[in-house]
Amino acid sequence: MELIADVLERNGLLFAFVVVGAMMLVSGWLSKTLTRGRLQGSAIAIMLGLLLAYFGGLETGGEKGLADIAIFSGLGLMGGAMLRDFAIVATAYGVDLQEIKKAGVAGGLSLILGIFVSFIAGAAVAAAFGYTDPASMATIGSGAATYIVGPVTGTAVGASSEVIALSVAAGLIKAVVVMVGTPLIAPLIGLNNPKSAMAYGGLMGTTSGVAAGLAATDKRLVPYGAMTATFYTGLGCLLGPSVFYFALVGIFG
């Protein structure tokens, strides 16, 4: 037993391929038998992944979901930023550049709007829960943008570590809900063409959430959404501790 576990640990990435392969197989079967193909196999696989991540986190108390369990550590490499971004870039192969040009203005606008809407929504919720100082509001608002912008802003404006932790949690919730919820809300918001996918990527911003959510909706939309989402975190880190924070200081400080 120990010998097998040892082999699996030493060849972590290969075992990750097997594990994900099994998850896709089960999800495809569930999709066909339980939902008659209405909910795509990839959507179910992503939910299954999140569920396993939850139990992995409970089991180990770590931060990397299932990958914190030694034999599953290869999942961390397979699903890490390097291979994820590599695969996202590959999906752009064969993309219609005309579509991107057509949606350029809308995509750019969606980014700016998306960042500010998240800032304001997050800050409003923070204020409703009694965090009324500008530093806390800016940090939680930034966390509602993405879980990377939250700590960047929080550190810059000197928020407490408790508030920074809350901002990360807010960003994680957004990413997780975007992953699961995108296929469900897609028909309601007209998310069925490259242009709306670019708008969606810019408005949501969480690259992991958008990448997984669009994959579960219609994989042909992935490159368009990912293209705008990739600008979001950088812009958020730029605007959070500066424009947004100073606006809050001006209004509430």
Binding site: S42, A53, K64, G80, A87, T91, V176, A215
Partner: peptide
Amino acid sequence: YIPIVVAMAATQNV
């Protein structure tokens, strides 16, 4: 891409 995204989902801090 999709299998990688599934692996990513399984390594989130849920």
